[in-house]
Write a protein that binds this DNA or RNA. Structure first.
Length: 830
DNA sequence: GTAGGGTTAG
């Protein structure tokens, strides 16, 4: 576009035309001069503030005039055009004043300068080699202009400033700042124009651009351009290339590049070696990283704090805290002081190992050294509190950060939001989310993921989808975490085919590379009994070249176990190993649970042995399964013993563990111990679930005293504690059997009140039992309630009533029932 | 230009 530039075409714009009229010192070519003379509005009236100001400045002196009344009165009415005229006039007579006037207008009067003025001042500053100020002016301009502004700015530079001195520096700064602001396309555009004008870009600009493009192959285009342009490569250039290769996972290429540059006489820099060390550490190859550390020493380079911190971090991640501490002392011995980063790394290391004592020691040492905790330290402390379930303390720390003047970060908000979601306080999380925005902290894709997950877990898929859309509207691309949450939620709510449609849409948009998404879908299929689809999807992903994980197999194993297909389940377990993966505690527990259900306790215990042999720690779920097995064999004492063992091993029994063992004692008619265990749950801060109470109610109904069951249920109702559906139907059933229709009625009503949907099956169960005892009035009453609630009778229920009327000898009611049956279109079979 | 901190599935 700019190549087709027409000389002076810009003069067509009145703004520029009238500007030229005031450029006393501007020496336009003849044609411009003529053009200008022909303009009728060029001669200004004597009251023109521009002339007044310019002459005032000359007569009174610069500073006096600007502080005077005339200027103060007129300044607020000045427009961009007038200011342009003043600045341009000043530029020629005294460039320093042009800059001072420019700054004064911007800083004192919040005046928004035109691009023209900014470029004038930029050229002045470039001429005086005032690089910092030049950069500032260009930064301000590009912040306001935004991305995509390069073509119009270049056009202005080409047309208005073509022959100006120092234009090269201004062009270069423009490209540099565009690159720094990550407006890469604009930077490239400016560079292309510079090439046309045969202007050289500085190595700083090239380096910045190289840095922005280091994640992709296009990096080499820039690198070659540097060579072609003949710009002097700096050590930085090489370390950026190395960093780029590392980030592209081309570690070998990075090392080769290091060798090449070494051969060319540019020895390796500390930064390059640090970058490579960091990469090896992240891959878990601490030893290789150490060898590069040695190489550094061999070259006579002095490792800096980065070098030490990188290695210490690698060691901490690997769990080698002793060595990490040794390196820290080494660091001190060699005159490199451990800094806040070092201490944060060590703290995290101890934290990962669960050694809080160590973490406190690190904090103490840090404080002794006079170092103050920074945002990262605070974040880790907040994390610690949140992991212990103490969100309140975390929020307090965040307050403390604010009072100490720290800028709150998206990260610390994420931690707090995640903890609130985990304890089910999603609405509190949403409140905090809005507060976060009020504090000017922008949520990112992780923040959104956390909230979407939280909402989905609470079943609020609609709200989650709204947030999902909000993400899109903010151009924050959803990652597999947020998509996974939606997918999981659809599966959990039984909308499996919808989930699949969603997954397919992700595939269509090329957003489904993460195995986690497929794992969720496969599990969804399996949990809803569709093992076949799960297997088809598994085959599909392997054909696509997506590597399955142990989790993928765990779901499939669960599916085959549910079908009691042990052969296939075990074959899949072997496949895990064949693929070089490791079965996890979940794999073993799934299989053990299946054997336990099947009554094959020998196989179950063999698997436990195998687990131990392979060094896989059983979880509290594993123990629960074993306890269930022991219960099945009526080895109650051993089960209780195992409950103790769990605690000793630091595994906390959960509600399911207790429910299992309580049920076992109920079945053994040992109701007393069952209640003792309920008490133990409270003592261990475990809130009994609706299942726990239902098991106890059932126990009392079947093996104990029905009156006690009544008492317990009424008590729970008063405490507003809900039972499961089975809990209610059990007690209703028991009262029907005993013929206490009054109580049955009462609990039936209670069940409805608690919001359970009552199906025809529930009515049938009650009516059948009443019919058996010829309690026909009561049976009829239940039947009427059913009709009242809009449930149509079916064949089974009608026949039961017809039979009962006949058996119990109530012929008239029997005929009435027959009429109703026929009316309902349900002809009796006989 | 290089170091430390946050989210998910069974």
């Amino acid at each position: 576009m700019l190549n087709k530039w027409k000389p002076f075409s810009f003069l067509a714009k009145p703004h520029v035309c009238s500007l030229l009229s005031s450029l006393t010192f501007f020496k336009p070519s003849v044609s411009v001069a003529r053009l200008v003379e022909e303009e009728p509005f060029l001669s200004h009236s004597p009251k023109d503030p521009v002339s007044e100001i310019l002459s005032g400045l000359k007569k009174m002196g610069f500073r006096r005039f600007l502080a005077g009344d005339y200027f103060r009165n007129v300044v607020l009415s000045l427009d961009q055009l007038q200011v342009d005229k003043i600045i341009n006039s000043l530029r020629v007579e005294s460039p320093d004043f042009a800059v001072v006037f420019f700054d004064l207008m911007r800083n004192e009067y919040r005046f928004r300068h035109s691009r023209f003025s900014r470029f004038i001042v930029a050229h002045v500053l470039a001429g005086q080699r005032r690089h910092e100020e030049l950069r500032f002016v260009v930064e301000q301009m590009l912040k306001e202009e935004g991305s995509g502004s390069a073509p119009s700015l270049c056009e202005l530079l080409l047309n208005g400033f073509r022959d100006w001195d120092q234009k090269s520096l201004v062009w270069d700064m423009l490209a540099f700042v565009y690159s720094r602001f990550e407006m890469v396309h604009d930077a490239l555009y400016v560079l292309a124009k510079m090439k046309d004008l045969k202007l050289r870009a500085s190595i700083l600009t090239y380096n910045s651009l190289l840095y922005n493009l280091r994640h992709a192959y296009i990096m080499w285009d820039v690198y070659n351009e540097i060579k072609v342009a003949g710009a002097t490569q700096s050590k930085q250039t090489n370390s950026i290339v190395i960093d780029g290769l590392c980030s592209q996972s081309k570690l070998q290429d990075a090392v080769s590049f290091l060798r090449e540059t070494e051969a060319k006489g540019l020895g390796p820099s500390v930064v390059s070696l640090n970058t490579i060390m960091s990469r090896y550490c992240k891959l878990g190859f601490t030893d290789v990283a150490k060898s590069f550390f040695c190489m550094m020493l061999k070259y006579g380079l002095l490792p800096d704090a980065y070098s030490y911190n990188i290695l210490i971090h690698g060691l901490c991640i690997a769990g080698s805290m002793e060595e990490a501490l040794e390196f820290t002392s080494d660091m001190e011995k060699h005159g490199v002081e451990p800094d806040i980063v070092t201490y944060n790394i060590l703290m995290k290391g101890f934290d990962l190992l669960g050694q809080m004592g160590g973490a406190w020691m690190v904090i103490q040492r840090m404080l002794d050294k006079g170092l103050n905790p920074d945002v990262v330290t605070y974040l880790m402390l907040i994390c610690g509190h949140c992991q212990n379930g103490n969100v309140k303390e975390g929020l307090k720390l965040q307050e403390e950060m604010l009072s100490r003047g720290f800028q709150l970060s998206t990260l610390s908000y994420s931690v707090l939001l995640s903890s609130l979601c985990k304890i089910g306080q999603v609405h509190e999380a949403l409140v905090l989310f809005y507060e976060m925005e009020n504090h000017g902290v922008e949520p990112d894709h992780i923040t959104y993921s956390i909230l979407i997950h939280g909402l989905c877990k609470q079943g609020e898929v609609q709200s989650a989808l709204l947030l999902y859309k909000e993400m899109w509207s903010k151009s924050i691309p959803p990652n597999s975490y947020s998509s996974g949450a939606i997918l999981l939620s659809l599966c959990k709510n039984g909308m499996v085919s919808e989930a699949r449609m969603y997954l397919d849409s992700l595939v269509m948009n090329d957003c489904a590379h993460d195995i986690v998404l497929y794992n969720i879908m496969i599990d969804g299929y399996v949990k809803h009994g569709n093992l076949e689809e799960a297997v088809v999807l598994y085959r599909l992903i392997t054909e696509k070249g997506i590597t399955p994980t142990t989790v993928t197999f765990n779901s499939l194993i669960y599916g085959f176990c549910k079908r009691r297909n042990f052969t296939e389940a075990r074959r899949l377990m072997e496949t895990i190993r064949l693929l070089g993966l490791e079965p996890t505690a979940v794999t073993y527990t799934t299989l053990m649970n299946a054997y336990c259900k099947d009554g094959n306790l020998r196989c179950m215990l063999e698997l436990l042995q195998e687990m131990h042999a392979n060094g896989i720690r059983p979880t509290h779920v594993t123990y629960t399964v074993i306890i269930k097995g022991l219960c099945k064999q009526r080895k109650l004492q051993e089960a209780v013993q195992l409950l103790e063992d769990m605690r000793i091993k630091g595994l906390n029994p959960d509600q399911v563990t207790y429910n299992t063992i309580i049920q076992c004692f109920c079945k053994a008619r040992n109701i007393k111990t069952a209640f003792k265990l309920l008490n133990e749950m409270w003592l261990n801060n475990l809130k009994p679930t609706p299942v726990t109470y239902s098991i106890l109610i059932n126990g009392l109904c079947v093996y104990g005293n029905l009156k006690d069951a009544n008492k317990l249920l009424i008590y729970l109702h008063e405490q507003n504690i809900k039972l499961t559906r089975v809990g209610y139907t059990q007690i209703i059933k028991a009262h029907c059997v005993k013929g206490d229709v009054h109580c049955a009625f009462m609990f039936f009503h209670l069940m409805m009140e608690m919001g359970f949907e009552i199906s025809i099956k529930d009515y049938t169960a009650v009516i059948n039992r009443l019919c058996k005892r010829c309690l026909m009035t009561e049976a009829q009453q239940f039947f009427s309630i059913m009709l009242f609630h809009g449930i149509s009778p079916d064949q089974e229920i009608c026949e039961a009533l017809l039979d009962a009327y006949q058996q119990c000898g109530d012929i008239i009611s029997g005929y009435q029932m027959l009429a109703l049956t026929v009316k309902a279109g349900l002809l009796p079979r006989r």
